[in-house]
């Protein structure tokens, strides 16, 4: 088992180094990507701040609590952009062009070779800044030592849930002639998840918590961090992750069987 993990780690290091080489050879794009992420981060934080200049609460939360939630989600976005984002776009292109043949023929787990292939180093430049904001608002909402210790685990859990949902959604590309629209659907899901669950009401909230559990991504851990009595969403999140792993393994195999190489 450890040998297998080591092998995959070695392969991943190669994926990262080739991605960095490619990305840094287009320096203007590389720098623009950094600025794009920065604009997005500050416009999101700015919008929430401006709203709070006129209201005391949104739902049950005050400004610092919502900004802590937002910076938590933007940190997930940053990690997602860095590790996975590019691979989703390549996946739709590879299916359309038939180049997926070369990817799935490699002697590796196909999910790994499809979704872990591209690393975006430009996002790494913004990570310290985004992390700084997360820590700043974490201090403002009085997180305890236990909370700080749990934070890395929660960030990983949230990222895992987000990518599992996106992996499953992306398998629908196997059935479509051009799957690029699915990537836009993914982005809209991220937009829904970027707000706490209490802004959605009734049936919609249930759908976005259970059927398409995007609201668990941020609301699960952050509600728990802010109030230890609210552990239910976090527990649901862990359970949902296990269920989604099973669904992904099944639907991915069905999708691969349905894949009809465009080039052959």
């Amino acid at each position: 088992m450890m040998e297998k993990v080591g092998h995959y780690w070695d392969v991943y290091k190669k994926f990262v180094s080739t991605s960095v080489s490619v990305e840094t050879s287009f320096r203007t794009s590389f720098i623009l990507l950094i600025f794009m992420d920065l604009f997005f981060f500050f416009s999101s934080v700015g919008s929430v701040s401006f709203i709070y200049d006129h209201v005391a609460n949104i739902g049950p939360w005050q400004k610092d609590q919502l900004l802590f939630f937002l910076t938590f989600m933007l940190m997930i976005d940053n990690l997602h952009m860095m590790i996975f984002s590019q691979s989703f776009w390549e996946f739709s292109f590879n299916i359309k062009s038939g180049q997926l043949d070369y990817v799935i023929l490699k002697p590796m787990n196909t999910i790994f070779s499809v979704f872990f292939r591209h690393f975006r180093a430009s996002s790494l430049f913004n990570t310290p800044l985004f992390l700084g904001f997360l820590i700043h608002y974490g201090i403002k909402v009085n997180l305890s030592l236990f909370d700080w210790l749990m934070m890395p685990l929660f960030l990983i859990l949230s990222l895992v849930l987000l990518i599992l949902i996106e992996f499953i959604l992306s398998t629908s590309m196997f059935w479509l002639t051009d799957g690029i629209g699915i990537n836009f659907l993914r982005m809209q899901m991220q937009q829904l998840a970027r707000w706490p669950n209490f802004i959605y009401q009734g049936f919609i909230r249930k759908v976005l918590t259970v059927l398409l559990p995007v609201l668990l991504i941020g609301s699960g851990p952050v509600h728990f961090l802010l109030d230890k009595n609210q552990w239910q969403l976090l527990a649901t999140m862990v359970l949902v992750i296990f269920v989604l792993v099973i669904i992904l393994n099944w639907i991915w195999k069905v999708g691969l069987r349905n894949y009809d190489s465009a080039s052959s």
Binding site: Q191, I199, Q201
Partner: peptide
Amino acid sequence: LQIIGPALVFFFVKYNLWSAI
């Protein structure tokens, strides 16, 4: 998904946000 979807979701989020406010 590319053209109408994002605008609809954007509106949907804003509607819910202002409803909560």
